[in-house]
């Protein structure tokens, strides 16, 4: 399980990285934590001619309070996010995702940027970031400069994002969770570091009169990209929690979706399990919302 031979570059600044991608973009693959790339290299599922390692590029690892949102550098590790007091205070649902990625060893090296650009359908951050809504975006840099992509449009397909081959993801922006926001991220996997089979991210808020206003129910690992459980959201929005029929609301959670079949579970299993997990996640998020 040794990778095919490759040339290795570890530039010391971002513009050098972009230059390399501009010239040799088709032959090159960026490496962040390597927690997704290295297993692929070792199995020889990918054989890039050049690996461009980002580990020496300064200024990509940070968690900053920008007031209305938090700015997280792409090379910030899952452990750094898990342990961040700032994120715990301002965007705790992100920690719920970070702390279940892989295993403790993987979390020491794996990065949020790497996780997002890899766009594994079973990845943990994507459903959480989609649940956080319109305030979530990513900053990318390329030969033609910097652009910001709203997160809800970022994931296009299996291992496919809106990132161009010569661009580098540099920053993730997440909104600050408002006070008394109910949230939950439930991952279902067979063993410790297995990928999730059905992942559910919830953001819920009540208005002053006790009616559910913000209501995001996002399913991960059910189809190719994170998706809204639209019917469930519709049935919950505008209602008081004591007037909800939870079983009715979750029954249609997977409605209209074509779940994938994978080694972990087949489509029918995902269809059957989704309402159950959505119900558990809703209960968990409501209990945070009302306390």
């Amino acid at each position: 399980m040794i990778p095919a031979a490759f040339d290795y570059m570890d530039p010391t600044n971002l513009s050098e990285v972009i230059d390399i991608l501009k010239e040799r973009g088709n032959d090159a693959k960026l490496m962040a934590g390597g927690m997704s790339l290295l297993p692929l290299l070792k199995l020889r599922f990918v054989e890039p001619k050049i690996i461009v390692d980002l580990w020496k590029v300064p200024g990509l690892s940070y968690i900053k309070d920008m007031g209305q949102y938090l700015a997280i550098g792409a090379m910030t590790t899952h452990y750094e996010i898990e342990a961040s007091e700032l994120i715990k205070a301002k965007c705790p649902i992100l920690i719920e995702a970070a702390k279940v990625i892989g295993s403790p060893q993987v979390r020491n090296l794996g990065t949020i940027g790497g996780n997002l650009v890899h766009a594994d359908p079973a990845a943990d951050y994507p459903p959480v970031l989609v649940a956080l809504g319109k305030g979530t975006s990513v900053k990318v840099q390329g030969p033609s400069g910097e652009r910001t992509i709203p997160l809800e449009k970022f994931f296009v397909g299996v291992f496919e994002t809106q990132l161009n081959p010569n661009e580098v993801l540099t920053e993730i922006q997440v909104p600050v969770q408002k006070k008394k926001t109910g949230y939950a991220y439930l991952k279902m996997s067979r063993r410790g570091s297995d990928p999730g089979i059905v992942n559910v991210a919830i953001i819920a808020r009540q208005s002053g009169s006790g009616v559910l206003e913000d209501m995001s129910v996002i399913l991960g690992s059910v189809t190719n990209t994170p998706v809204h459980a639209y019917k469930t959201e519709e049935l919950l929005r505008g209602k008081r929690i004591d007037a909800i029929n939870l079983d009715e609301a979750v029954e249609m959670a997977a409605d209209g979706l074509e779940p994938t079949s994978t080694v972990q579970a087949d489509a029918q299993y995902r269809l059957d399990v989704t309402p159950v997990r959505v119900k558990q996640a809703l209960i968990s998020s409501f209990s945070l919302m009302i306390h």
Partner: peptide, 27 residues
Amino acid sequence: CEDTICGACTILMNGNAIKSCTILALR
């Protein structure tokens, strides 16, 4: 396993436990 699952290769690098089968020696 050589596949990042089993952890038999775990070592401490700069104080962090990492799986040495899933990191380049260059790092």
